[in-house]
């Protein structure tokens, strides 16, 4: 914003008299200096530009923040790396509620790796394949957000769909949180949001496997069409689609599964028991989220299209008039 204002002043400067031009030069160099100093004050830790993103890592009031192109991607408390994250990432821990014996999870989209870190801590035996397109994001997550490659966490530099189509591995859960973010909004890569893509996903899931998709949107109003379209698209492949809204931000996690899983009472009791045995130290937030699973068909789904490779106007839907 500051840079922009300076540039516009520069245009006007051409019309000014020489004296005010000189003052203007002083003012703008002072502004530049102020900007550099304020960057340090604002706690900017790292800044770089990759092929895909302008990445900034900054520390604000004890929280480390990852920004892509100006929009917040990830947060982490500097005192305790298991805290300070966006609440929606906790919902992505729910796959074990479907299958307490889950061993393999695919995560598409890395960001600051909140979900990855949480999995390593809570479910240390679950093997994670972490797919990320941007190698610089990978480097930043490793360096500044403490996501470590380990025996059970492997990084893959690839496009999610290309990777999934070519792998033989079956997964107990496939988690999608891949966006292109700017100040103009968060854009879903259209090829990760179509019927054809979810068919590839289904073919790589174990019988009790689930797919979870982070939709940035609401039930009504802002981006309701995107949410409705995503619901319908997932439902065209998965007979059971559920959703869990984030309590703190405008995110809704869509869950697609081949069976009702823990939404059936007997399975629920059985899985809860198994979870308490395998993971006795699951946090309260996890159990709260198991209570928040919704199965009602969202209103916006009625008017939204099913997205396909042939027709996926995800960018256009974003700008649709809110109903």
């Amino acid at each position: 914003m500051l840079v922009y204002r300076m540039e516009s002043n520069g245009v006007e400067a051409n019309k000014m008299n020489p004296l005010s031009q000189r003052t203007h030069g002083l003012v703008s160099s002072a502004a530049l200096l102020a900007m550099l100093v304020s960057n340090a004050w604002c706690g900017q830790v790292y800044e770089t530009t990759s092929v895909y993103n302008h990445i900034i890592v900054e520390d604000v009031a004890g929280t480390r923040i990852l920004r892509f192109n100006g929009s917040q991607e990830s947060r982490m408390s500097l005192q305790d790396s298991t805290r300070g994250h966006f609440q929606y990432t906790e919902i992505l821990q729910l796959p074990v509620f479907w299958n307490p014996a889950a061993t393999n999870v695919l995560m598409i989209g890395l960001g600051g790796g909140s979900t990855h870190r949480a999995y390593q801590l809570l479910f240390p035996e679950i093997h994670i394949d972490a797919v990320e397109l941007d190698p610089v994001v990978m480097k930043v997550a490793k360096t500044y957000f403490g996501v470590r490659e380990s025996r059970t966490l492997k990084f893959h530099e690839a496009d999610g769909r290309v990777y999934l189509r070519r792998t033989k591995q079956k997964y107990d859960a496939i988690l999608l949180d891949a966006y292109t973010s700017t100040r103009y909004g968060s854009f879903i890569p259209h090829h990760l949001a179509t019927t054809e893509f979810f068919t590839i996903v289904r073919d790589h899931l174990t019988p009790n496997g689930v797919v979870m998709f982070n939709v940035i949107g609401n039930y009504q109003g802002w981006r309701a069409d995107i949410f409705g379209a995503m619901y319908k698209t997932m439902n065209s492949v998965f007979p059971n689609v559920y959703h869990v809204p984030s309590t703190e931000s405008q995110n809704i996690i869509l869950i697609g599964a081949m069976n009702e899983g823990p939404l059936k009472r007997e399975t629920k009791l059985r899985n809860e028991e198994a979870l308490l045995k395998t993971y006795p130290r699951l946090p309260l937030a996890f159990w709260k989220n198991t209570q928040a699973i919704q199965s009602v068909v969202p209103v916006s789904a009625a008017k939204s299209p099913v997205l396909s490779d042939k027709f996926a106007p995800v960018d256009g839907l974003l700008n649709a008039v809110p109903r």
């Binding site: 092929v51 895909y52 397109l133 496009d159 769909r161 290309v162 090829h191 990760l192």
Partner: peptide, 12 residues
Amino acid sequence: ARYLLKDFGGAF
């Protein structure tokens, strides 16, 4: 380009 994205991914 849009058509090719589904096969070759979102890579630049």
